[in-house]
Design a protein around this nucleic acid. Sequence first.
DNA 1: CCCGACACTTGCACGGTAGCAACGATCGGT
DNA 2: ACCGATCGTTGCTACCGTGCAAGTGTCGGG
Lengths: 144, 144
Amino acid sequence: MVRSATEEALLEAARGLMRISLHAADGVGDVSVVQLRALTVLDHLGQANLGDLADRMGVTPSTTSRLVDRLVVAGLVERATAEHSRREVTLRLTTHGRATLQRYDDLRLAALQGLLATLPDPEREVALRGLLALGSGAAAVGRS
Amino acid sequence: MVRSATEEALLEAARGLMRISLHAADGVGDVSVVQLRALTVLDHLGQANLGDLADRMGVTPSTTSRLVDRLVVAGLVERATAEHSRREVTLRLTTHGRATLQRYDDLRLAALQGLLATLPDPEREVALRGLLALGSGAAAVGRS
DNA sequence: CCCGACACTTGCACGGTAGCAACGATCGGT
DNA sequence: ACCGATCGTTGCTACCGTGCAAGTGTCGGG
């Protein structure tokens, strides 16, 4: 099962980005990768029910409820009963939550830009443009 | 703290790649993200001491020893005493370990190619070339 | 040969993630 | 007003990842 050079390079890019994100995650301090994912989802949605968050994260409401417990204790997320329905819960990032997410993203961004900086000039430009194109595509898909 | 559109797009690319890798990870089944990272490192090194693996993963030998325990039980890694030193341990992927890693990478690759496929034609090409450039850069750095 | 340094393992403690099953509260249609 | 469906929480259980501290065995220089 040999893989083409192209495929291998794509994988290497994926590995690099993964490394960057994971490394940034534990540079944030006291927030797990899963928690950062939850913050990212909430930031993206602006506001969400617990069930929505659970769906987006692909885990059960049970797990999510306890995840939110920890986020609330950490002061990152605000949990309030929804306006239109007493049994639903509305989750929102707190200011601190937004700041934490921002620190995470700043770290990733810096690392990514650092990686780009190591590339020789023509390829640097190509890589940058490629990532930008990919970024808009990924945003458009926004799935899962 | 506003971020430029360029930076936002870069972040979106990083988020997309991260989502792809995480989703692929739990598509593999019964292997955690950390374990897959260990397999990736071992595959990259070909063979390594426990201490080397611990360094690369940024955790203590203690943690790594137990991580390896689980990998050995799962049949993914082989642990043998090194040839030149009885106190050192040599870790290598088993065939099953390599296969598992390959499944993981196949999933990531497919998802990534799927994402590329959603892009309209000029940008698709740009994104591909960009990722390839980034891939070689990431491989060259090979850090952490 | 001894003793300090080294590589790894193990006991312990802790917190995070995860699901199932049972429950509580609420909503909404009839 | 009821009753089924929905949303969320909570008890339980289990496993993973993590570090510290202590231990074991081994290597190597003096």
